[in-house]
Design a protein around this nucleic acid. Structure first.
Lengths: 207, 207
DNA sequence: CTCTTAGCGGAACGAACCATTCCGCGCGGG
DNA sequence: CCCGCGCGGAATGGTTCGTTCCGCTAAGAG
């Protein structure tokens, strides 16, 4: 019986941590996580020896969710573009925090084997979505799975206004970006990077 | 003579502060700004009474730069789309930090009149760029100047890998996003927001 | 050449924040 | 009714950072 209760608490804590870390970054105080989970800080420490450990578990849980979403999208959506699109929408859904925790592969920290394995599988499953879409000619050839991570990273952080408009703005922005990813947009209309013309746009000590 | 020297120092401090705040956020330590400017912390405090004051001056300076870039782009580029594109590239140029400081209109803090005036002019001048591009049919009708701010916000933050690749990744990402903004992409290929189909993409307690 | 002093850089101070630990209380079982 | 387990929240120690203080240097006057 302790098992069931503990499991529920574990889940609440991990979920709360994922949300809080997603909103305020990994530097968010433990007290915030505790409040959101509706428990005391000590209860978190009773289950996880340190904040670092909690963070790792949060990431592992997020990886699992990402993998599930990706596999489900691939299995259930016929059109590869729709699969990729659905996957990204789901990961970015407000409050899930999946996509926010995902890209933060920062810092040293010796990762556990489980962590590394899951990270590897995340890469594989996203790569599969991307490859499908490319093969179908629905995604630019010059895009790869790391671009998807990049998109997650840039689509997530910092609160544009606050709270409720977040989801709306993020969805809008994702639409914009996906539009930019589409293959049939053909070549970029702007000058290609590293051409003289492109450099002219950026360089210039006008400042 | 003190004037000339002081002016140079002022400029170095403001520039350093803009870069540091752009890279590490407004929470970056004063010591970091001092180091980058090549002065001691005390010298900064001799000129600016507090960090808050320095931050305000940094923002004011950034606003001025943004306004200059926008006006120059509008005056010098014939094609409105190219003007907008050039403007954004310039603002996001690595190290300039213009675009990073720009969107952080956060927090309470009673702003000075000068600050409010400049903020107003920034809005106007960006709106002019956007309107030109829309009138020319080169920008989606459903975009407005706040979207440009939103783009700045999302294009800037958090370091993808580190340092030198930053500029490259940001340029790539900006290209993607601009592509998404183009008018001739016509309607979004994905379901429109707030339709049943769109909600189906996002909602779902699959989590 | 020496003395003065204005102005600088960096060390020092105090406050605020946060991970982690400790403690007293309330509740379920005996 | 009594016991002790487990909880929540207060206490602790350390770290970070804004701001201030101090001794030094170097430039200019005599």
């Amino acid at each position: 019986m302790a098992t069931a209760t503990t499991a529920r608490h574990d889940d609440a804590v991990i979920r709360a941590a994922r949300e809080v870390f997603a909103e305020h970054g990994m530097a968010a105080p433990m007290a915030e996580v505790a409040k959101r989970a509706g428990v005391g800080v000590a209860s978190i420490y009773r289950r996880y020896p340190s904040k670092a450990e909690l963070v790792e578990q949060v990431r592992i849980a997020a990886f699992r969710l990402v993998i599930d979403e990706a596999e489900a999208a691939r299995a259930e959506e016929r059109d590869p573009w729709r699969a990729l699109s659905r996957f990204m929408h789901r990961c970015l859904r407000e409050g899930s925090g999946i996509g926010t925790v995902l890209p933060q592969l920062e810092k040293r920290h010796t990762f556990s084997v489980e962590f590394r394995d899951l990270q590897q599988r995340v890469a594989e499953v996203i790569e599969a979505l991307v490859d499908d879409a490319k093969l179908a000619g629905e995604l630019r050839a010059d895009v790869d799975w790391t671009d998807v991570l990049l998109l997650f990273k840039h689509l997530n952080p910092s609160l544009p206004t606050t709270e409720s408009r977040r989801a709306e703005l993020r969805a809008r922005y994702l639409g914009l970006v996906l539009e930019g990813l589409r293959a049939d947009g053909a070549a970029l209309r702007g000058p290609a990077p590293d051409t003289a013309e492109w450099r002219a746009l950026c360089d210039n000590r006008a400042e």
